[in-house]
Design a binder for these strands. Structure first.
Lengths: 311, 311
DNA sequence: ACATATCGTTCTATGAATGAAACGATAGAA
DNA sequence: TTCTATCGTTTCATTCATAGAACGATATGT
């Protein structure tokens, strides 16, 4: 059963003949003749009676026409629905990111995107675990990573490099020796992201490229950056966190950066998405919005690299 | 836009993957892969997100699926409707015949057919003019003809040969000379079927094969056999009519046959139909019923010839 | 009557869709 | 880890549907 044959049949009926239908569809009438005959053979019944001048539907043909016509109208609807979504900026975009990115990165820019694109719904899935994009129906993930990501089948787009710094409360800093030498801060109480290892230590780099390691006593380990930040603000110890997470607290004076010539890492922020083909305008709008706005929101004014094709 | 691609897509969605759908449809999965991709290209949007393990629908894919699924259900309905009609004896059969055939031939057998086939509706179009079968949506015409029919594109099936005889009322016969010689009846009042010519004459044949012509004065010309028969019964003159038209009147004694060794023609009764391919069971039932019953109803117990293909 | 236009069907070289196998990727088992 | 099964995609020789012209059959115009 070839569904296209039904379409051809309906066209012949509606245009009142093979030649008329062929002209209207811009296809040779030999095709119509063959396909309609094929349909009749498949159904085992004659749908049209023809002379060289007149074509009329048989009783069964009439009935088949009615149903097939409705079916085709449905397909029309299906296609129109898709075309509308592909021509207007509307639909749902699902974005996955870490809780920290949600709270201190997207938080600042998402409202603007939603105001600019009233037809778009954004579903944010904030999680500190990396999810399977395809299983989870996620359109794009925003992820930070130190070294190059494993070469999965996902598309990767580099957005920005952010810096991690060491932070503590002004009071805490007042109680310790002022120095730019990491060694003097060894074995201070550490507020650590993620699960801690036996011997915790931060790996530091200075702007000349020199590296140093700073061991600490883990007092609090959490997946949540906000929790660590607050712990540091109440002088529980030292935390290494992305600069954008602590910016407001630094400006407000509740946190201070220590060892300011050292960074605790410069992870790459990248977008991950399943495919680049056949994207909705809504999604493309979201993508270009992220590329343009997120680096600034994270405090790095320019993307550091050009997109790269994965796979 | 290939409608089959939509079908393949729906199958992949419903079976939850390309391989599963391929197995269920008994087609290679390469086809599914290519056709679904083609559909996506046609629509300009991605409908499925795939890894090598999982397939999920995108937001647009989901919407397209819903509509397409309904459309396909409609096609299902269309096909089922046809299959039902082609598997059960039901539907409408439109038959064209002369008024005489309707009144004195079909009249006797049609009720039995309708009783035997409760699902069938018969539409009778009794007319003394030959209609265009295809324009008129007529399934089969019953026609009498003297010589071979013009070789149209219609199928012709010979049913029976009937005889035309000369009839008049008993009173009329009582008033004329008893003889088996046509010449003695020359120029009697004639009751003639159809439009009369200037000089009317009947062409007679006896059973030995001899021919004779019998001129008459036209008193009444009509398309309607019944009218002529009644005119003869009230002694208005002589009518040449098919024997089956007058049989009941002869048995009742209101008409008598004259020149009983001569016939006024032995026309062939044939069925004409547009096509022999893809016939409904209802129609085939009607056809075989006619072939079996009509000759007897017309007073000729056996069909005189085998079917012949037209065109 | 004849020429002309148009109808639906048929014929045949050609080009696109097809299926089987190979392929790379991924997930669970050993 | 390595092995194996299965996923969806790709490749390439083969088959099959297609386009365009020719055809027979009607109508219509002159």
């Amino acid at each position: 059963m070839d569904l296209n044959d039904a379409f051809y049949f309906v066209q012949v009926v509606e245009k009142g003949g093979f030649s008329a239908a062929a002209r209207s569809l811009n296809i040779p009438k030999s095709r119509l003749s063959r396909r309609v005959r094929q349909l009749e053979d498949d159904l085992g019944v004659r749908l049209l009676q023809r002379t060289s001048r007149v074509v009329t539907t048989t009783e069964v043909g009439e009935e088949y026409y009615r149903h097939a016509q409705e079916a085709l109208a449905r397909f029309e609807t299906a296609e129109t629905a898709v075309r509308r979504k592909t021509n207007t900026i509307e639909g749902t975009v699902t974005v996955s990111c870490s809780v920290g990115m949600a709270q201190f990165g997207l938080d600042q820019i998402l409202p603007r995107f939603l105001q600019d694109n009233p037809g778009v719904t954004v579903v944010q899935r904030a999680s500190n675990q990396m999810e399977d994009l395809i299983k989870g129906g996620i359109d794009v993930a925003i992820r930070g990573h130190m070294d190059t990501l494993p070469d999965s089948s996902l598309i990767q787009v580099k957005l920005a490099r952010v810096e991690w710094h060491l932070f503590c409360s002004p009071e805490y800093r007042g109680a310790i020796e002022q120095s730019d030498d990491p060694a003097v801060l060894a074995d201070h109480p550490a507020l650590v992201l993620g699960r801690p290892r036996e011997r915790h230590q931060w790996l530091l780099t200075d702007y000349g490229g020199q590296t140093a390691s700073l061991p600490g006593r883990v007092r609090l380990a959490s997946d949540d950056m906000s929790t660590l930040k607050n712990a540091a603000a109440v002088s529980l110890g030292i935390a290494a966190l992305p600069s954008y997470v602590c910016r407001q607290d630094v400006e407000a004076g509740s946190l201070v950066r220590i060892l300011p010539s050292w960074t605790a890492g410069r992870p790459q922020i990248s977008l991950l998405m399943p495919s680049r083909r056949g994207l909705l305008p809504a999604f493309e709008a979201f993508l270009s919005f992220l590329k343009q706005e997120l680096p600034a929101a994270l405090g790095c004014d320019a993307p550091t690299a050009t997109p790269r094709r994965g796979r």
